[in-house]
Each structure stands twice: as structure tokens, then as C-alpha cells.
Design a protein around this nucleic acid. Structure first.
Lengths: 335, 335
DNA sequence: TTGAAAGCGATACCAC
DNA sequence: GTGGTATCGCTTTCAA
């Protein structure tokens, strides 16, 4: 193994000089820098991560805690992970992947043994058991999602309350007077997953202030559950003309069921999907959607974590404004 | 921060004793062990990963290199990741997530800086540019997939050649004389992804030896591509009665298109899916499937990597035998 | 602008 | 069965 000492010797300088060339924390003469860089290159030197971490208290590793159950939407999580890893690399960090299964102890372990400098935590629940732990770790943390009491922790998320409201408003402005929300799995609500509740609240609130009749329904990610939901929804006295699907997993099934029942979109029923943009485009026909900005969230989370590493930034809860893209699956009510 | 020295002092022993209690590499008297463990607990001691790595040349980190493009099947990759992380944890290892985008240099970087003890590499192509690099790293490596020349590297995968053959045989035994393969995206073939080619080869080979007429077709993961494929396939003179879908992304669309065209499964056409078991069960109706044993592969890969860490094991290429589970979507040809 | 050397917190060898 | 301590490879202070 090539060490910094080897490089120093080859370049005829001291190890500290090599270190400073690498870190840029000191001004180095042009000539010295050249010699050092040459030696580094020639010897193929690569700093040892462990030694570096030990000496500097910096691992250059970002821990990412994700839910790896199948009950949450997998492609969405994956997109998020991809965005995070890419962004982290751009800051010279690698990503250590932890699962939610490890719980609060996992966080303690990783922080306690200095495996990572900072953490990004996904799938935050309203009353999140990991929050108190995270607060005590004394390490930069960014939550994706907003617990009931973020107290001191940095959070970033889509403004789901606004999003819920915006979806209703979108439909209301098209003249819809009876709309439905096809929500996430009951399991998600039971867990108290914060975004689900917030969306629901915004949805109901806007429905009432827009004088729109709203039905809401959790829907497990299976064909059967979806059919049952649809049966119930479509059997209502007041015909539902607008449907908001806040459940990526059932988008495909939903469209094929509507088709099977002879309902055309948006002719008979408008469909607004709440999902990442690419997913809205990948359906049997493109769906008007309220975007879950997965990539932006991932990148933002990394940036916020890095900022905290640079020096204590004051905690903030950042909520991104919802944006709706019309792709033709919502339209005015036929009168 | 609590260090091993603090623990040693509190327990009235030397640091080395604490270390040995932790590692179990030395016999320790019952009494001493008790005292040490108590102190560890009381002080909340957690070994510093960097220091440990530096001193022992072991990081207890496993690097996992995954394709994070959207063109490959995301849920499948995710399942694999989940299985790997869980298994790695059971060996006391954490997982560092790398993307294929980093290419060979990424592997060099991670190995060179001792960020991980071993690597597991997904989405291996036939003529895989990373193979020569991996071979030179001198670190335990397990490839998921089999490059044309594994030379010295350990690989594990489903036996896709056998799998291709088994799917044809399954249909042939039910009396089908004209079958089709709906394969992965053209992009996958163009990349020379090894499993796609192997499956195709086995498929064709078995078709010819079973005297079955076989049509094969790559299919991009979009509705349009699928429709075009189906149009072509169903327009054939000799009516196709058996369909093998080796493309997780189009299973849903496929079934709804068949339905739309008034084709019943398996009455008019048998459908055999090549995908993870849970995916076969999650369709509009359960599909007979040839399982891609994602979880087993992930766990096996970790085990093989760990074995290599224990001492140089001789390289092997392990191919899992395909298994078909009948869920009713394939049946005898109506005559 | 550069060098010397004291740590960082473990492990594991050598002694006893 | 236990202790002392050199060592791992780097960062960073102190000195020049």
C-alpha cells in the first residue's frame, strides 16, 4: 500500500506538505505542488479512509436511512436513493445505506461508531421514535418528511397539505363538485406517516372551502383492494367526476379498471395523480399530475446536510410548493 | 467520546484486554469479562470505526454496486438491495451503496482507499469493463451475473440458459407449438447484459429441440412498445398460444392489453412470467412464473463475499436452477 | 512556504 | 489469563 509517507519521500517533501496539497488548507508553492501531484500520480496514491477519519473526525460518508419494505413505494424510494447518491458524490461523500428496520439503535450505532458524518432519514412518521435519538446524536441530520415535533431538526418535504389542497382546487376549478381521494395503503395511515395525513387534511380542507363533496379512501396496493375501492366510490349517489390518486402503486390498475368499466378519462372521470413526473408519463396514457419532486428532495437533503457539516446552520423546515402539470387526464366536467 | 482507554480504566484492566473481550480472540476470565462488559455498558462505549479499520485492516463494510438507471427494473434491484443489507448486517457489516455510473474508477477508488472489505456487483455485462479492474483489486468480489470471462472471479446468478429452456419446455409439455418470448428492453440486449442473452439462447435452443416454433422480441418498458410487440406477435400466421414474459416492467400492461384484445389467460393464451415471486402474485391475477430468486441471490452473494473474507476461497460460478411455480396462467392448448 | 511530531483510537504482537 | 506498547496512515498544531 502506498502511503502519504511514500509520496512525500518521492516528492522530496514532508508528509504534512502532501497532506496540505491534498486538502488545500495551506498555500503551497507552484513548484512543490507540481512535484507532489506528480508523485501522487506516479505512485497511484490513494488516501486511506480509515486513517483519514481517525485523524480528522470526518468520514466523508453520508448515512441514508430508507424504508425497504415492499409496502412503501419502491420505485419512488429508489429514485430518491439514486438522486442522493449522485449528489453526495458531488460533495466527495459516499453513501452508507441503512434500513428503517434498524430503528433508533441503528442510528445510535452508526453515529456512535463514527461511520458517517451526517444522516438523511426517509419515511418519517408523525410521532417518530427516531427523532429524540437523532436530536441527541449531535450530528447533522436531515429528515425527509415532517414529524409532529421536529424540534431542532432540519426537515425537507413537499408541502403535502398544500398539495392536498391544490389537487382539490385544480378539480374544483374545472367544475368538479364531487371528488374522491384514493389514498395510500391503510398501513401507511396506521403507521401515522406524516405526509399521508397532511395530504388528507389539505384535501378535506380545500374541499370544504371549495364546496366540493369529497370522499376519501385508503387503498392497499393490490388489484383487489383497488377494485373494492372503486366499487364503493362509483356506487355513490352523487357521481364522482374527479379522482385524485395519491398512491403510485395502483395507478396502472386504476386506469385499467376504469377502462374495463367503460369510463373514459377525462371524459367520464378526471384523474389527477400524485407521483413523480416520470411515473405520470409512463402510464397507459400520460396523467396530469401533482409532482412529488423526488430528485429535488434528494438533492436538497444532501445540500442541507452538507451545509450543516460546514458549520452549524440553524434548523429549518423546508416545504416545497406543489406543482401540477396538465397532461390531459383532467378536464372540465361534462354538463 | 468514550474510548477503549476509558473503558479499560473503569474496569481496572488494560486496553488490550478490553479489545480482546470485544473480539473474542483471546480467552478471558469470567470475572474480567464481566467487569469489562459492565464498564462498556455503563460508559456507553462504542468502538470507533475509523480507528478499528486503521488498526485491523477491516472496515466491516461491504460495497454494493447497483445500476440506478430507470431502464433496468427498479423494484427488482431494490429487493436485492434489501436482502443484501439485511444479510450483511447479520455478519456485522454495513453496506456502502455505489452506482454503476461510477464505473471502474469508482471501484478503484473504494478499494484503494479501503472504504470496504469486499464488493458485490450487480448488472454484469457479458464483456464487462469492470471485470479486469475487479480482478486486480485483490479484494473479495462477488458478481451477480456472469461475464463472458469470469476468470478468477466469483459469480452467482440464476441459470438463465436453463431458465430459458425450462420456460419453453413448460409450455411445450402443455402442448404449445408456437410460443413467443417477450424479452427485456432492446437497450438491455445492446448493452450485452449477460442474463438476457443467456435466457434467449436457452429459449431458442429448447424451442428447436422441442420442435416448437419460437418468436422472440425485445420490448422497451412502455405501453407503446408493448402494444407494438403484441401487434406483431399476434399477427403471425401460426397463432401463438404461449407467451413468456421476461420483462417485469410490462407484466401489468401486457395483461391489460391481452384483456382489451379479448384474449383470455390461459384459455386463449398461456402466460409465463419470469420475475420475482411476489411480483407474479401481485398482478391482476396470479401468474405462473419462473422465479428470479432475488432474495436468495442477495443473501448468497453476501455469504460468498464473507467466506472470501475468512480466507481465500477458490472462485466459483454458482448457477441456481430455475423453478417454475404454477399459478394458473398457463394451461394446455385448446384443441 | 515548509517541516517535525503529537495525536486520533483501535489492534495485536511480545512479554510475563 | 493479562498487560505494555508499537503500529496503522493521516491531520494539524507548533515552530521555523
Amino acid at each position: 500500500m502506498v502511503t502519504i509517507v511514500d509520496v512525500a519521500r518521492a516528492a522530496g517533501v514532508s508528509p504534512s506538505t502532501v497532506s496540505y496539497v491534498l486538502s488545500g488548507k495551506r498555500t503551497i508553492s507552484k513548484e512543490t505542488r507540481r512535484r507532489v501531484e506528480r508523485s501522487i500520480h506516479k505512485l497511484g496514491y490513494q488516501p486511506n479512509a480509515g486513517a483519514r477519519a481517525l485523524a480528522s473526525n470526518r468520514t466523508n460518508v453520508l448515512a441514508l436511512v430508507v424504508p425497504l419494505r415492499t409496502d412503501l413505494n419502491v420505485p419512488v424510494v429508489m429514485q430518491f436513493v439514486a438522486a442522493t447518491v449522485a449528489k453526495a458524490r458531488s460533495f466527495g461523500h459516499d453513501v452508507l445505506l441503512l434500513t428503517k428496520d434498524e430503528g433508533p439503535d441503528g442510528l445510535r450505532r452508526v453515529a456512535g461508531s463514527s461511520l458517517a458524518d451526517a444522516m438523511i432519514v426517509l419515511d418519517v412518521e408523525s410521532s417518530e421514535p427516531r427523532v429524540p435519538v437523532l436530536r441527541e446524536l449531535g450530528r447533522p441530520v436531515v429528515l425527509i418528511g415532517v414529524p409532529t415535533d421536529p424540534g431542532g431538526l432540519t426537515c425537507v418535504d413537499l408541502d403535502f397539505t398544500e398539495a392536498g389542497a391544490a389537487s382539490v382546487t385544480h378539480l374544483a376549478e374545472l367544475g368538479h363538485r364531487a371528488v374522491a381521494l384514493l389514498g395510500p395503503s391503510p398501513a401507511v395511515y396506521e403507521r401515522g406517516t406524516s405526509y399521508a395525513d397532511r395530504f388528507l387534511a389539505g384535501f378535506k380542507q380545500a374541499a370544504s372551502s371549495n364546496k366540493v363533496r369529497a370522499t376519501t379512501m385508503a387503498c392497499a396496493p393490490t388489484y383487489d383492494a383497488l377494485r373494492t375501492c372503486l366499487d364503493t366510490l362509483l356506487a355513490r349517489r352523487q357521481r364522482i367526476t374527479g379522482l385524485v390518486a395519491h398512491n403510485e402503486a395502483v395507478l396502472g390498475p386504476l386506469l385499467s379498471e376504469l377502462d374495463r368499466r367503460g369510463l373514459s378519462v377525462p371524459g367520464d372521470i378526471s384523474v389527477l395523480a400524485v407521483c413523480p413526473p416520470d411515473m405520470a408519463e409512463a402510464q397507459v396514457f400520460p396523467l396530469t399530475s401533482l409532482a412529488i419532486p423526488v430528485v429535488e428532495l434528494g438533492e436538497l437533503a444532501v445540500e442541507m446536510a452538507m451545509r450543516q457539516l460546514d458549520g452549524p446552520a440553524r434548523p429549518e423546515v423546508r416545504l416545497l410548493s406543489p406543482q401540477i402539470t396538465d397532461r390531459g387526464s383532467t378536464g372540465p366536467v361534462a354538463s
